[in-house]
Design a protein around this nucleic acid. Sequence first.
DNA 1: GCAAGATAGTTTGACTCCCTACTGTTGGGA
DNA 2: TCCCAACAGTAGGGAGTCAAACTATCTTGC
Lengths: 173, 173
Amino acid sequence: MAERGTRPRPEPDDIETTGSPADGEVWLGMLGDFIGFHLRLAQEASYQAFFQRIARDEGLEGLNIKPGHLTFMALIAENPGITQTALSRGCGRDKSSLTPMVEDFVRRGYVKKRRLLNDRRSYALTLTPAGEELSRTLSAHARAHDDELDRIVGIDAKPELIRLLRRIKMSLG
Amino acid sequence: MAERGTRPRPEPDDIETTGSPADGEVWLGMLGDFIGFHLRLAQEASYQAFFQRIARDEGLEGLNIKPGHLTFMALIAENPGITQTALSRGCGRDKSSLTPMVEDFVRRGYVKKRRLLNDRRSYALTLTPAGEELSRTLSAHARAHDDELDRIVGIDAKPELIRLLRRIKMSLG
DNA sequence: GCAAGATAGTTTGACTCCCTACTGTTGGGA
DNA sequence: TCCCAACAGTAGGGAGTCAAACTATCTTGC
């Protein structure tokens, strides 16, 4: 019974006089000490920067390529014949999220989906030549993006950063 | 002949024999060296762990509280009278994403929304006593979650990790 | 063999998010 | 005074995600 009509808002409440409080900067409080909080902001910033970088490539115009597609393509390239479930684990996404993406990329001719004879539940995914080409393009962008991250982080700090991030994933995942 | 019922899918392509390829472990290739890739996996793992932690709290049963709500509540608590736009910046989300959440929390009696007299475009958000209580609960969970992250990362490495994450956000955002 | 449970992939539904366009308000010039 | 650009917040649409239920297939134990 979600009354979601045209005017369901519970009234903007009352009117009251208040000087603009903390309008310029936001005080984080304890959030500023939380690894999880900064993880999210950094990941979001990285995602957006990579997204913008891809969007700038005229060769990818209209293909609607997103950062998530890099992982998708790169993992198929590195693991020819990978199954969708294994791919979903590698991508860190639910397997049901991959279904539309696989279907889309098969239709566009980047990915080939072959049924296995010895286990007819599974499909083996491989890249077509066009898919290899697209994968190379995305990988080049990814490398450029990560070079930028390397500069920001500093090349000495990078191994330690990756070690810590992997540790978080391993310990919690 | 196995008439496989209705088949709206664009044909699973062809059948081919292939031994199970890399089904156990997935080879990451160059992805394994990318900061952005590990950032996403670590962030997702942290999100899921925090989500599970909240879900375990019987006091929050049925409230449908998610990790994002912590940031939302904590920032209002730390910045009483904050506007929705400032809050959206702090949360790292588009302001239009906050509209349903604000509406929801106002209706549930956790947040108070007052119109400003000196600028009738804005609303000042504050927590109700119930909101303060909820915020304290969420903050306690967040602290426990981040204590776990501290243990994983190691307390010596934490300042450096946060410094690097902030640097990424600042440089790219 | 054959039933029971596991597994691969798909479907569906709910949810969250962003983006774009829109309304109402403010404030600064012609 | 009157415009009009800038701003706060909302509405609507579309994309992407997960979780649960479902189908088809494989495996195991009897």
